[in-house]
Each structure stands twice: as C-alpha cells, then as structure tokens.
C-alpha cells in the first residue's frame, strides 16, 4: 500500500462527509430545477446538520445512540477500506454491518413507524444485497482479484465485459440512495404514510449522525460506480460516474413509490437477469 493510498483513505475519513454534503446539495438543486423551483443553496445540507447539532436531542432509549455511532463507524470503515485500495468484499461486509446497525437503532426505539421503517429497510437490504455482492464477483472474474487497487489497474474495456453487472448495480443504486420508486423505508416528507420511517424517533445530534452517515455512504457508492470506469483514467471515469450518479435524481423525480413486494421481486429479477447472466457469460468465455 502506497503513501498515496493512505492519503486517499484518510482524505476520505475527513473530507468524505464534505464531499457527500456537496453531492446532497447538488442533488437538491437538481431536483428543484426539475420541479421548476429555485432550490436551496449548495451548502444547505451542511447548514441543516449544523443546526441539528444545536438542537436538543430526545431519545426513547439511550442505546439508540450507541447503535447509531456503530452505524457511522462501520460506514467509515467501509469507505476507508475502499479508498485504501483494499478488499472490495470486506468493504461490502462493513457496509452491511453498518446498515444492520442503523436498523437496530430504529428497532430499539420500538415506535410503530420506526418499526415498519426498519423492517422495510431490512427488506430493501435483502433486495439489493445479492446484486451488491455480485459486483465484486464480476470484478474478480475479470481481474482475478477482490482488491480495489488491482481493479483500478485493470483493462480499460472491463466496463464492457461487466455491462450487465453495471446495469444491475445502477438499478440497486436507486435503492441504496433511497430514491423513488424505492424510498419506502424512510421518506423525505414527514406527512407521508410512514412519517419519517426509519428516522422517525431520531432527533438532534442523533439525526445529524444519520445524515453524516448517509453522506459517507453516497461517497462510497460513487466510489463503487467509479470502479467500473476507473481503468479509463480519471478524466473519463469521474465525469461518467458523476453523470450516472445524478441520473438517479431523474429517476427519483419521475417515479412513484413502489410497495415492498414488487421491489423485492423486481430487484431479484434484475439481479438474475443482468448480474447472474453477466457472471455466467464471463465464466464461460474467460
């Protein structure tokens, strides 16, 4: 591991939330423009979180804060491994642990809305986990390694070989980013059926932790997307992955929310149709 890799990893730890906040701000501006609104300033998400820290924190049980810290910690570990050029599978497992801890935090409060929110979140995890796990497998078949540093050093045309997996990944990226039609575990608006779902009973600094965790998560997901194009060089890879990333905003604004059963069925079908087929073809012709 080079000094460069360590710098990048620590840069992620410190600057990751900042970058994530910018992505979130850009997302809000884009959404507003699509709805013919002006939208908030770019730094609005940061203002929001700073304000959350100023507010009183009410908890149903003090343990919920513990689980939330765990969520944030494992999210940071996942990103750290990714940006260090480490093992993609490990990064994925840390991401899963982090997701489970977030659900536990919501379960711990035991209000009906949090309960349904976390149950739905778990169902979403069940929906996207297979596809997310297939991504490293695809990279392994192409480059012979689970290591991010080896994947980056791969052949420029690996994205073509992994076309199906890329499509599958973009599909579940919508779920991971909590975008419509798959935003069924928590909603942006407190007046909807689920109130705020998963985050109903978090407030003040607890809610700020969740927000920061999501900023980290968005950067990690952007990193995963970047990996597909990484061998093309930064000049190509970064713009392409950013465009695809913000393509999700368009999807968000043009779709209504689905129920959990179609979501689960649809994502497993997409995983099977694109992800698995891609893997099978790779193993046959590799």
């Amino acid at each position: 591991m080079t000094a460069h890799a360590w710098t990048l990893a620590f840069a992620f730890l410190i600057l990751g939330p900042l970058l994530g906040a910018l992505l979130a701000g850009l997302d809000r501006i884009l959404t507003a423009r699509m709805q013919s609104r002006r939208g908030p300033p770019l730094l609005q998400p940061i203002y929001d979180v700073l304000k959350l820290f100023e507010k009183d924190t009410l908890v149903v049980t003090s343990l919920q804060t513990l689980y939330l810290w765990g969520f944030l910690l494992f999210m940071a570990i996942s990103g750290f491994i990714l940006f260090l050029g480490g093992d993609l599978l490990l990064s994925l497992f840390a991401l899963a642990v982090s997701g489970i801890l977030l659900c536990l935090a919501a379960y711990a409060t035991n209000s009906p809305y949090s309960n349904i929110g976390s149950s739905r979140e778990l169902m979403l995890m069940m929906a996207y986990e297979p596809m997310l796990l297939i991504v490293p497998l695809g990279f392994f078949l192409v480059t012979g390694s689970f290591r991010v540093s080896d994947i980056i050093a791969g052949e420029p045309w690996q994205v073509l070989e992994l076309g199906g997996i890329l499509i599958g990944f973009l599909f579940i990226l919508t779920i991971k980013l909590r975008k419509s039609p798959f935003d069924l575990s928590s909603s942006h608006h407190g007046h909807q059926e689920l109130v705020k779902g998963l985050t109903t009973d978090f407030s003040g600094s607890d809610l700020a932790l969740v927000e920061i965790g999501h900023w980290y998560e968005n950067v990690i997901l952007l990193g995963w997307l970047y990996l597909f194009f990484a061998p093309l060089g930064v000049a190509w890879a970064l713009p392409i992955s950013l465009i695809l990333f913000f393509g999700e905003v368009l999807v968000d604004n043009t779709h209504a929310r689905l129920k959990w059963a179609p979501t689960l069925r649809l994502s497993w079908w997409v995983t099977g149709l694109f992800g698995v087929t891609n893997l099978v073809l790779l193993s046959l012709f590799a």
Partner: peptide
C-alpha cells in the same frame, strides 16, 4: 459460478431473519 450465485442469493435472507431477531431483542 452457480455455487457463488447460490451463496449470493442465500445470504440475503440470512441477513434478514437474523437482523429481524436482533431488532426484537434490542427494542425497548
């Protein structure tokens, strides 16, 4: 690849039912 895919699809429900259980345990 078939075996790997089985693991991929089998571990998702594993995650679901164990987490569901933990959720019940930690609920106040």
């Amino acid at each position: 690849v078939l075996l790997a895919v089985i693991i991929v699809f089998g571990s998702a429900p594993t995650l679901f039912f164990w987490s569901k259980w933990m959720g019940k345990l930690v609920a106040v």
